[in-house]
Design a protein around this nucleic acid. Structure first.
Lengths: 131, 131
DNA sequence: AATTATTTGTTATATTATAACATTATGTAA
DNA sequence: TTACATAATGTTATAATATAACAAATAATT
């Protein structure tokens, strides 16, 4: 039996909800919100999240334990992610900068390690909060 | 009263323990290990960790919820951190590459956001695990 | 010594995430 | 088309990570 390619019902419910949100969502807040749609337990949410991250539909903001939809429509896998996070309003934006991603994807140092993935989080104050 | 400049007893105990370790440590594993030194509750550990991160003595590996000592002896604050993480053996190394840190510290995009901090985590296979 | 802010200790609890296992669904091949 | 294997799901329980709230002790400043 092959691994699914389409999204299962739970995955679709969770993805829809995250895509509608303008801010990163926490697993338990997702759980609370999708209960009316039949998802009852944390594990159902976490399993959906895991899979969605795996296929690049969503990303995890590690410093916040929260999830956002991938804005990069052609993103198939989450192997090169960068975000900017406002420390005041907690607004999170996916940084899409070709130069940056090229630079990081090709980064190599003397450690001899082969990097195949990275996650970068910038922190600061957004335009609004700077004022 | 001024904010402390030296380390308090708990902070020193926690720092000593992290510095002796060759791998990232989790808060509760630290707690377990320093109980004999009088630290009894999670909060005592978390408070020490918070402060140590604040002053740059240790860093948090966000994707692992674990802490490592800063290898960069002159690091005063944790505002520009980069790590390489082996996904097989979980070995974590602080990346110190002047070009990289300059590039990221000066990074700006059209979002108008002022970045004052970043954290970067590279994932891959270390030399040993590649074989 | 009195005042004040800071740090500490302690208990309880909130939040985030996974283990274990039974069940159901789905693809593969006889 | 039924057997078989594998994957996905549901469910309960629990593990792991982190913070709230408040009382007590400590240390700097006046």
């Amino acid at each position: 039996m092959q691994k699914q390619e389409h999204l299962t019902k739970n995955q679709q419910i969770v993805l829809d909800f995250i895509e509608k949100s303008s801010e990163p969502l926490k697993a338990y807040s997702i759980l609370f919100s999708v209960k009316k749609q039949g998802i009852k337990a944390p594990l159902q949410v976490y399993r959906a999240l895991d899979r969605l991250v795996e296929i690049g539909k969503i990303h995890k903001i590690e410093s916040r334990n929260a999830f956002v939809a991938c804005k990069n429509s052609n993103c198939q896998v989450s192997k090169a992610t960068a975000f900017s996070i406002c420390e005041s309003c907690e607004d999170v934006t996916e940084v899409s900068n070709l130069k940056l991603s090229k630079y990081l994807s090709n980064f190599a140092d003397k450690s001899g390690m082969k990097y195949n993935k990275y996650n970068l989080e910038f922190f600061g104050l957004c335009k609004k909060c700077k004022k």
